[in-house]
Every structure is written in C-alpha cells, then in structure tokens.
C-alpha cells in the first residue's frame, strides 16, 4: 500500500438517536448562552490550558453533542477556569459556567456512555 505521508481516521458510525442528551440539556437549561456557540475557536486560541496540553474547549461543544463522554471526562480535567475564553468569546458565552456545569453534570447526572 502506498504511503502518502498522512493518515486518516478510521470510519465510524454515530447513531444520534442513541446519544444521551441529558448533559447538553442540563447545560443549555442552566446556561442558555451555550446554545449560541458558533465554534469560532477564539476560546481555544486564548486558552491557558491549551498552551500546556491539547485541551480544546471548542471541541467539547461537538463532543457533548456526539456523546463522547469519556473523552470529555478526561479533557475537562485540564481547564483551570482562568476565564480568558469568556472575555474573548464573540457571543458572550459564559464559558466558566459551562465548564462547571459539565463537571457537575458528569458527576451528578446518570449518563449512558
């Protein structure tokens, strides 16, 4: 097989109907501004934790909707809650509350993984 110098992700199937929506509903209910995220990535660009790790707060938004809760559990641990993302967000999303809600949601809600 030819080596092209790059790799591709293995194909995967995401069944939206089986994804547990408890976490996303919990977040949007308590922090409605989260729904207005346009995934611009300003938050990740300024993030203190992203400077030290591969933490990507923008990706969390997608991961929550895709139901990748185990990855979120590992990732969310890296946020230091410094609040820079909140200041740069063009949509004025209260990102610190989103992080706190994800953390709380993952421990208190019984989420099907």
């Amino acid at each position: 097989m030819n080596k092209f110098g790059f790799s591709t992700h293995a194909s995967r199937v995401i069944d939206y109907e089986t994804i547990d929506t408890k976490l996303i509903s919990y977040i949007v209910e308590n922090e409605p501004s989260f729904a207005s995220c346009i995934s611009c990535g300003s938050c990740t660009a300024t993030c203190s934790a992203a400077n030290l790790t591969y933490f990507n707060i923008r990706r969390l938004n997608v991961q929550i909707r895709l139901g990748e809760f185990e990855e979120i559990q590992q990732e969310i641990d890296k946020c230091m809650l410094c609040g820079k993302c909140m200041l740069v967000c063009p949509r004025g999303i209260n990102t610190r509350n989103v992080i706190m809600l994800i953390k709380r949601g993952l421990t208190t809600l019984e989420i099907k993984k």
Binding site: S48, N51, L52, M80, L81, C82, R96
Partner: peptide, 16 residues
C-alpha cells in the same frame, strides 16, 4: 512568559 499556569484563585473563587 510561555507556559504559564493559572495562579489558582479563579478556581478558589469557584469553590474548587
């Protein structure tokens, strides 16, 4: 300057 770690106060304020 480069790999700065947050001072911890924002976490403390949030109760963490």
């Amino acid at each position: 300057k480069e790999k700065g770690v947050c001072c911890g106060r924002p976490l403390m304020l949030a109760g963490q």
